[in-house]
């Protein structure tokens, strides 16, 4: 039986139009060039690309639209852009430049109507909610899954599950859940929280934060009930090559697109 493939998504951080922490090339290729990075991942069989704009300035957003345009002219695969999208006009510029989807995070918490605005104009399919979540121990000894904003620096007091449900109702078509306690640890995704989010909504959920090895991807796509797995370091440092990863997942019975 045919099925929808689980997606493997590399994420690239972009600062002032340059990729920081991209894949390390062995030859004389400009590793800071978003187009070169995109070509590499396109050929590796990545299912989508996420570009995350870490430039916090207004000029940065204009540069980002240009980055998207150049990438979309070179590789023919779905591209999602996140970071710095505050208004519908920011989203419009990125989608017109060739992004398939835009991902909003802090600005959606501050003004949830932004989700509806983007969804009304470009459809649910183009509207992604990024959530930075933390497991926070409370004074009464219980644990709270809390939504953080501003790159994870500021707690909002909001619980993750009601927030993703609200986003779905407002028109989000996908959730990217980045669990910050796990992020950068290379010790594996937060399977429990990912599965809980995936069951709370009826839209696809992309797991992010913590991937260190192929087994982590396997677990989050099975036990963690994620529809896609996003990672940065393990791809960039070539700890894990996408063709090898997909063959591994396929051998374990996970539906993936092997190219």
């Amino acid at each position: 039986m045919h099925m929808l493939a689980k997606r493997i998504i590399p994420c690239l951080d972009v600062d002032g139009g340059r990729v920081v922490k991209g894949v390390r090339f062995f030859d004389h290729v400009d590793a800071g060039d978003p187009v070169e990075q995109a070509k590499f991942y396109d050929q590796s069989g990545a299912d989508e690309l996420v570009f995350y704009d870490i430039t916090a300035s207004h000029e940065g957003r204009k540069i980002m639209a240009d980055v998207v345009r150049r990438v979309a002219e070179t590789v023919f695969m779905p591209i999602t852009v996140g970071g710095g999208i505050r208004e519908l006009s920011d989203a419009t510029a990125l989608i017109q430049a060739g992004a398939e989807k835009v991902s909003i995070n802090s600005s959606a918490v501050r003004r949830p109507e932004l989700i509806s605005e983007i969804s009304r104009k470009f459809g649910r399919c183009a509207t992604v909610l990024g959530v930075d979540a933390n497991r926070v121990q409370q004074s009464d000894g219980t644990e709270k899954w809390e939504v953080f904003i501003n790159g994870g620096r500021v707690g909002t007091g909001r619980d993750v599950l009601p927030w993703v449900k609200e986003a779905e109702e407002r028109g989000a078509g996908e959730i990217v859940l980045n669990v910050m306690n796990a992020d950068g640890t290379l010790e594996g995704y937060d399977l429990e929280m990912t599965a809980a989010v995936s069951e709370a909504v009826r839209i696809p959920v992309v797991a992010s934060g913590g991937a260190g090895k192929p087994e982590d991807m396997l677990r989050v796509l099975t036990v963690g009930k994620a529809d896609a797995a996003l990672a940065a370091s393990i791809f960039h440092f070539r700890t894990c090559l996408i063709p090898d990863l997909k063959r591994f997942l396929q051998a374990q019975g996970v539906p993936v697109r092997v190219v």
Binding site: A5, K6, D47, E174, I203
Partner: peptide, 14 residues
């Protein structure tokens, strides 16, 4: 069967 909508991603053709 409880699949997510949108149908989003790579699927094979019959």
């Amino acid at each position: 069967l409880r699949l997510k909508v949108p149908h989003m991603g790579w699927n094979s053709l019959n």
